[in-house]
Design a protein around this nucleic acid. Structure first.
Length: 667
DNA sequence: AAATGAAACGTTTTT
DNA sequence: CGTTTCATTT
């Protein structure tokens, strides 16, 4: 779509200031943003004075690619683009030492502090819920401190609040000591940075895509960025991230918050055929209209009827859909077909049914790829070769050694740190030499376990080790068992050979083919192949194959980066590898911004979608309805809905079909 | 006191 | 499936 329609043209050519573009689903929002940037550049704006904020890094990449195709790379070089998080990191790391960490890793840290102080009471929030609340607080409340926030919102927790505050303040101290940052820290620090430390020229214009999903903190960052003009594009009907703090009021109150704000809307839908669009429109009009708008059909061709299939059992549904997809593969590309669901768990069984029929799939998200143990192990191993003494990576690796738990990891970690004068890597590779190591015992009570009389005898026990590692004083630790020692030696070998390698592809490939890695994944495959108290060898082989396949993705992806740190940060920011070669399996949330010729919308049982438990909190039933609307409007030509009365055979009651289906039906 | 292994549990969504 | 809990082992 190269030519702009009247609505788009008006938006693209608006003057500098505060502009909000209400872009309904499929109305050419991306083209509009791309055209706007092109116009700014033609007006003489410097590329590096344009900032483009998107919800995913993939979206940013695609828009930049489109601009590059149109204008050539030299003209657009310097445009600041990416998610709030990615751009924040970009700026912050110029001034600070930032060790970006995955949420799951930092949760482990929080957990350990939580458990250290935990009073034995049964009305306590568990650490994970506490982490959620804390994150919510950070993203939404810019006024109170955490204690005040808890007192206001969780008054009934009483004295527990003191405990929570203590845990979180120590957590913050720990993070600071290691320079650990999580997603929220990136935003919090970015807000500070743009408020106090940003000294360059103001931006010519800041453009924001998916504006309906910004939260209060992100909105504050926007306000803090010095700029001449703001260009926000969004659709309140597609606001689906309330759980993440997204505040629909931000788009709703645009006119009130910015003086002389101009509002444009894009209503002509180029994506979907009429019956799908009309269905979606009927559903979404049940929600309050924040700005008047309507979706206008432009595709007037004949339509295929929207289908609805009902089943008694979820598995029958998956089976049917797999067959239905199979029948369409002659006429359609796999990647033009999507199966969309509310909960990731729907994807697991759907995936299995499709695979059984030999249909290639590409699944997005899910039990996050980067949270897989094998992937984390690979990344942790590589991460240990760099110079910072990363206890979280060390913990991740050492816990895989039999007979080592949290407590022992700590002892070993501290010993290496002492022996390396503060550097873990040095402690493992080149421990300092002393006549005796009693000083370790005095430095921390954990080392009370050292006894100099035992030291000599103990050390000689390990003379069989093949490497220099046999002389490492860490072996004096009396709680190291035979297995642990050989495990540590394998770690030593890996680090020794890779300490000076920074190329992520080489480093990860070496980690992948290392002995220590094969030890770990063997255990992992064994764990995953337990059937009734026994390891089934056939399954184990298959799991091992799975693990290796998972690793291949990441080994492939690593080729795109020059330094390990760059790779590491990008994987955490979820700058994902392309996988568009199969039938697309994805959650509604992950489908945002995408479109497919054929869409299967599955598991539309009341309770599941809308999720009734959740609709009592956060965005409520309206948000669930918006989710449904987003799912519907992904479909270009064909929409097939389905649901089952029972998820499992032994479910006690039958579900009814989603009320949203009935809302969309013509009267 | 720490680690293990078996058994029960529950499971939204993402940067 | 991974996580949590509990009883048992080291």
């Amino acid at each position: 779509m190269n030519r702009l329609n009247d609505e788009q043209f008006a938006a693209v050519n608006t003057s500098l200031g505060s502009n909000l573009i209400i872009a309904s689903a499929g109305t050419g929002k991306t083209s509009t943003i791309v055209a706007r940037i092109e116009k700014l550049l033609n007006d003489g704006a410097k590329a590096n004075s344009i900032m483009l904020l998107t919800f995913t890094n993939k979206a940013a990449r695609e828009m930049i690619a489109r601009l590059e195709k149109k204008l050539g790379s030299s003209k657009i070089k310097g445009i600041v683009s990416g998610t709030f998080h990615a751009i924040s990191l970009e700026y912050l790391k110029k001034h600070k030492n930032i060790q970006l960490k995955r949420n799951s890793e930092l949760r482990a840290l929080l957990k350990s502090i939580y458990e250290k102080y935990s009073p034995n009471k049964d009305d306590l929030f568990d650490y994970s819920y506490l982490a959620d609340i804390y994150s919510r607080f950070n993203n939404t409340n810019l006024v109170d401190d955490f204690r005040g926030y808890l007192k206001t919102n969780y008054e009934e927790q009483g004295d527990n609040i003191n405990f929570y505050c203590k845990v979180l303040s120590e957590y913050e101290e720990q993070k600071k000591a290691h320079n650990y940052y999580d997603f929220d820290d990136l935003l919090l620090n970015a807000k500070d940075f743009f408020t106090n430390d940003y000294k360059n020229e103001p931006f010519y214009e800041v453009l924001v895509d998916e504006y309906q999903d910004t939260n209060n903190l992100q909105s504050a960052i926007l306000d803090a960025i010095p700029k001449k003009s703001l260009f926000c594009v969004g659709d309140y009907d597609q606001s689906i991230y309330a759980f993440n703090g997204a505040n629909i009021e931000i788009i709703g109150s645009f006119k009130d918050r910015y003086k002389n704000a101009r509002i444009y809307s894009l209503n002509k839908n180029y994506r979907s055929v009429s019956n799908i669009l009309e269905f979606a429109n009927r559903v979404i009009t049940k929600n309050e209209r924040l700005y008047p708008k309507e979706l206008i059909v432009t595709r007037k061709e004949a339509t295929k009827p929207i289908k609805l299939h009902s089943f008694n059992l979820a598995n029958e549904q998956y089976e049917f859909i797999a067959n239905d997809i199979l029948s369409k593969l002659e006429a359609n590309n796999r990647a033009d077909i999507a199966v969309i669901y509310r909960n990731n768990s729907s994807g697991d069984l759907m995936e299995r049914s499709l695979k059984q029929k030999g249909i290639k799939i590409a699944r997005k998200g899910g039990s996050s790829f980067y949270e897989l143990k094998e992937i984390n192990t690979l990344i942790n191993l590589a991460n240990l070769t760099n110079k910072n003494s990363d206890i979280l990576s060390f913990l991740g690796i050492l816990l895989e050694s039999k007979g080592v738990g949290n407590a022992k990891v700590n002892i070993i970690y501290k010993a290496f740190l002492e022996l390396g004068n503060g550097s873990l890597l040095e402690g493992i590779l080149r421990p300092i030499k002393k006549d005796n190591y009693d000083f370790l015992a005095k430095s921390d009570e954990a080392f009370g376990l050292f006894a100099s009389t035992q030291n000599q005898a103990k050390q000689s026990e390990f003379s069989f080790l093949a490497t220099e590692f046999k002389n490492n004083p860490v072996l004096l630790l009396k709680e190291l068992k035979f297995d642990n020692v050989t495990f540590l030696e394998e770690l030593y070998k890996f680090l020794k050979e890779n300490e000076n390698i920074d190329n992520p592809s080489v480093l990860l490939n070496n980690a992948y083919s290392s002995k220590i890695f094969s030890l770990i994944i063997n255990n992992l495959a064994a764990k995953r192949s337990f059937k009734g108290a026994k390891i089934v060898n056939e399954i184990k082989e298959q799991k091992l194959e799975n693990i290796k396949n998972n690793c291949k993705y990441i080994l492939d992806d690593a080729k795109n980066y020059n330094t390990f740190k760059e790779f590491y940060e990008k994987t955490i920011l979820n700058i994902d590898y392309e996988n568009t070669k199969g039938v697309q399996l994805l959650t509604v949330h992950a489908s945002k911004g995408l479109e497919f010729e054929i869409v299967y919308l599955i598991d539309l049982a009341q309770g599941r979608f809308p999720n009734l438990k959740l609709s009592k909190s956060a965005g409520g039933i309206d948000e669930e309805r918006r989710l449904f609307y987003v799912a519907l409007t992904r479909a270009k030509d064909e929409l097939i809905m389905s649901w089952a009365k029972r998820q499992k055979e032994d479910d006690k009651t039958d579900a009814i079909r989603s009320i949203f289906i009935d809302e969309g039906k013509k009267n």
